[in-house]
Amino acid sequence: MKTLLIFILTLIGSLPLGMIVALLRKSRFAPVRGFISGYISIMRGTPLMLQLLVWYFGPYYLFGLNIGNWRFPALIIGFVLNYAAYFAEIYRGGIESIPVGQYEAAEVLGYTKTQTFMKIILPQVIKIIMPSVTNEVITLVKDTSLAFTLAYQEVFSLSKQISASQTSFMPFVIAGVFYFVANYIVEIIMKRVEKSMDYYK
């Protein structure tokens, strides 16, 4: 259950945040662009496990703050910010692959910039990036196991504990089956979504 919660909250947070990051990356203001590209570099260039530890221990070691019940929020912040960076790069690739003629046709027809993005560009981007998003979502299912670094009780840490206490290999097998089944469901759902957008090329 806790694994599912991490998974869902991360997607709810990072899918929209990634779009905001992708759009800010094309900002007219150079400092904004610089900040965003620095953020993406760090998120992609350091291990997620390390980032989770920084979010968890950072407030105390850096600022001497002692926040109660910080374990779970730190986990979600770490996951959301990390995945938003990856999604932002996927979105950027998608947005850049839309031919400039689509923007020009929309402009000549009098669509506003917002209309052009929401009605013309975004639906096409979503179709293009679907396979990459599926990849990322599958990775996320497996990455939830990293929550064990903060001693958060999800599938992986639980199976490790049980395995140690019962000196049995079985809990790991069960954890493996759990991840596999979860990803199998993700695959089926994403295939459906992709298929629903098959009506045009």
Binding site: P99, G101, E104, A105, E107, G110, P123, Q124, Y200, K201
Partner: peptide, 20 residues
């Protein structure tokens, strides 16, 4: 500017229809 855009239409070499 919106008013002036309404005066003119443009047909492109590459059609640029909206595929979706």
């Amino acid at each position: 500017m919106r008013k002036f855009r309404r005066y003119c239409g443009l047909v492109f070499q590459q059609f640029n229809l909206f595929p979706h």
